[in-house]
């Protein structure tokens, strides 16, 4: 049986993490192909609903990557994102699929290495957690 390869959705702010990811790529710092990046103008634009829908539709983990607190281009969008990630994390615990499947992380545009490291670590963490239980259940429900 093939090892489980998780699907990770990363919402990346274009002022920092998105550029960092780009840099990681161009500098040849590898991060797993599992990570699907969605570019957003600010993590403050990432709504609770986006995080929930990503998981509902099959993501095994969701990463939100924004600027360091205090460095947000829109003042406090990253802080709001952090609060929403906290809310979703508690909601996932309530559902019983694990609050740790969602994570907020911070970096600056020049930190390609940080993006690569976080992407690797988070992918590894989700790989160890196993598939989103929703996907397994969906198979059973359809059967």
């Amino acid at each position: 049986m093939r090892a489980f390869e998780p699907i990770i959705v990363a919402f990346a702010c274009e002022y920092c993490a998105y550029t960092a990811a780009d840099m990681a790529g161009s500098l040849g710092m590898s991060y797993p192909p599992n990570v699907k990046i969605i570019r957003v103008p600010c993590t403050g634009k990432v709504d609770t609903l986006h995080l929930m829908r990503a998981l509902q539709k099959g993501a095994d983990g969701v990463l939100v990557a924004g600027c360091y607190l205090g460095d947000c281009h829109y003042k406090n969008g990253n802080l709001r994102a952090q609060q929403r990630v906290g809310y979703v994390s508690r909601l996932l615990d309530e559902i019983g699929i694990g609050g740790e499947r969602v994570m907020m992380t911070f970096m600056s545009a020049g930190q390609g290495n940080v993006f690569a490291q976080v992407a690797n670590e988070f992918t590894e963490k989700i790989r160890n957690l196993g598939p989103n239980p929703v996907k397994l259940g969906a198979g059973k429900a359809a059967a």
Binding site: L49, M52, R53, L55, Q56, L91, E94, I95, G96, I97, P133, V134, K135, L136, G137, A138, K140, A141
Partner: peptide, 11 residues
């Protein structure tokens, strides 16, 4: 979304 996931988790 939450309710749907909670149900699917239970199959």
């Amino acid at each position: 979304s939450a309710l749907s996931m909670a149900f699917l988790k239970e199959g």
